[in-house]
C-alpha cells in the first residue's frame, strides 16, 4: 500500500468510527468535567487546610497530598472501583470520576496553595482591618486574585486530567480509549490506527481547551 492509499484507508477508518468515537468523546468530557469540578472543590478544601495555622489540618493535607502524588492513578482508580464502590454501591461512572477527582484534587490543592500564598500579605491585612472575617476575606479578596494567577497551571492540570481520564477504560467506562481498545481487539490489523484515532480526538480536545484557557486569561486581565 502506498502512502496515498494508506491515508485514504486511514481516513475511511476515521470516518466510519466517527459516530462511536463521538459518543465516547462525550463520555470522556463528562468524566473529565465531573472529575475536575469535584477536584477543584477537593483541591480548594485541602489548600485551605494546608495554609491554616492548625497543625492537625496541615498534617491531614500533607498526608493526602503525599499519598495521592506517591501512588499511581490506576491504583487509586482500582481502590475506589474495587474497594469502595461495592461497599457504597457507587456506579462505575461515579467511581471513575471520584478517583480522578481525588487524584487531580491533590495537584489542584498545591496549585491553589501556591496561588493563595503568592497574594501579598497586605491584602489579607487590609481586609481584616476593615472588619472582615478570615473566611470572608478569603472568599472576597484573596481567592478571586489567587484564582486568576492559578489559571495557567490549572489549565495545564486540566489537560493532564483530560488525558488521564483514559484510565477509566480499565473500570468499564466506554470512553475514548476503551473504544480504541475494543476496536483494536476486534481488528488487530488496525490496532495502531484506532489508537492513533483516539489520540487525535484527545489532541483536538486539548487544542480547543488550550485556546479557551488563553481566551479566559486575557479576559480576566482587565485590572492588571
Amino acid at each position: 500500500m502506498g502512502i496515498v492509499e494508506y491515508f485514504i484507508y486511514f481516513y475511511g477508518l476515521l470516518v466510519n468510527s466517527g459516530p462511536i468515537f463521538t459518543q465516547a468523546t462525550i463520555l470522556t468530557l463528562r468524566l473529565t468535567a465531573t472529575a475536575l469540578l469535584l477536584g477543584i472543590v477537593i483541591g480548594l478544601f485541602f489548600a485551605m487546610l494546608k495554609i491554616s495555622k492548625n497543625r492537625v489540618f496541615n498534617c491531614i493535607a500533607d498526608a493526602y497530598i503525599t499519598i495521592i502524588r506517591g501512588t499511581p492513578l490506576i491504583v487509586q482508580i482500582f481502590w475506589i472501583y474495587f474497594g469502595l464502590a461495592p461497599i457504597l454501591d457507587i456506579p462505575a461512572f461515579w467511581a471513575a470520576s471520584l478517583a480522578l477527582a481525588v487524584h487531580n484534587g491533590a495537584y489542584i490543592a498545591e496549585i491553589f496553595r501556591g496561588g493563595i500564598q503568592s497574594i501579598n500579605r497586605g491584602q489579607m491585612e487590609a481586609a481584616l482591618s476593615l472588619g472582615m472575617t478570615y473566611l470572608l476575606a478569603m472568599r472576597r479578596i484573596i481567592l478571586p486574585q489567587a484564582f486568576k494567577r492559578c489559571i495557567p497551571p490549572l489549565g495545564n492540570q486540566f489537560i493532564i486530567g483530560l488525558k488521564d481520564s483514559s484510565l477509566a477504560a480499565f473500570v468499564t467506562m466506554p470512553e475514548l480509549f476503551m473504544i480504541a481498545m475494543r476496536r483494536a481487539n476486534r481488528w488487530p490489523g488496525d490496532a495502531l490506527e484506532y489508537y492513533t484515532i483516539a489520540g487525535l480526538y484527545y489532541l483536538a480536545l486539548v487544542v480547543v481547551f488550550t485556546f479557551l484557557v488563553k481566551k479566559l486569561e486575557s479576559r480576566l486581565d482587565v485590572d492588571k
Partner: peptide, 27 residues
C-alpha cells in the same frame, strides 16, 4: 478601628468604588 497602610493595600481586582463599598456591603 480603621487602618491605612504604607503600601496602600488596595484590592487590585476591584474598582476604586468597589474598594470603598466592599466592607460596608459585605460586613
Amino acid at each position: 478601628v480603621g487602618m491605612v497602610f504604607q503600601l496602600f493595600n488596595l484590592f487590585p481586582h476591584k474598582t476604586v468604588l468597589g474598594n470603598v463599598i466592599e466592607a460596608p456591603v459585605m460586613v
